[in-house]
């Protein structure tokens, strides 16, 4: 869906559902997922439909992912950090896992 204009910025290593992904310093989680070609970051709690980041500006909440164990974080507002563990969310999430 998206590609980088140039490879600026140092590499940051994160994992998504256990798989290593290379992100860039300055990326947010949502952008790193898009750049890595991951086409959805969660399924909805109501019908289980796949969703991907929609607005990239904190409005839509479709970018919700689990970041380092904390569920339903807005991926488009959280900058990546080396070693960060991202999990995509399937349906209802957070507690009772």
């Amino acid at each position: 869906m998206f590609k980088r204009l140039g490879e600026v910025g140092a590499a940051v290593a994160i994992t998504v559902d256990g798989k290593p992904i290379r992100a860039r310093v300055g990326d947010t989680v949502a952008v790193a997922l898009l750049a890595a070609g991951i086409d959805h970051c969660r399924t909805t709690p109501v019908t289980g439909a796949p969703r991907a980041p929609y607005c990239l500006m904190g409005v839509c909440f479709d970018c919700l992912v689990t970041v380092d164990g904390v569920g339903s974080r807005q991926g488009c507002l959280v900058p990546v950090r080396d070693g960060m563990k991202i999990e995509t969310q399937q349906g209802k999430r957070e507690a009772g896992r």
């Binding site: 109501v46 339903s72 209802k92 999430r93 507690a95 009772g96 896992r97």
Partner: peptide, 8 residues
């Protein structure tokens, strides 16, 4: 109220 959680 929280967002939707798995039934527990």
């Amino acid at each position: 109220v929280t967002s939707r959680l798995p039934a527990f």
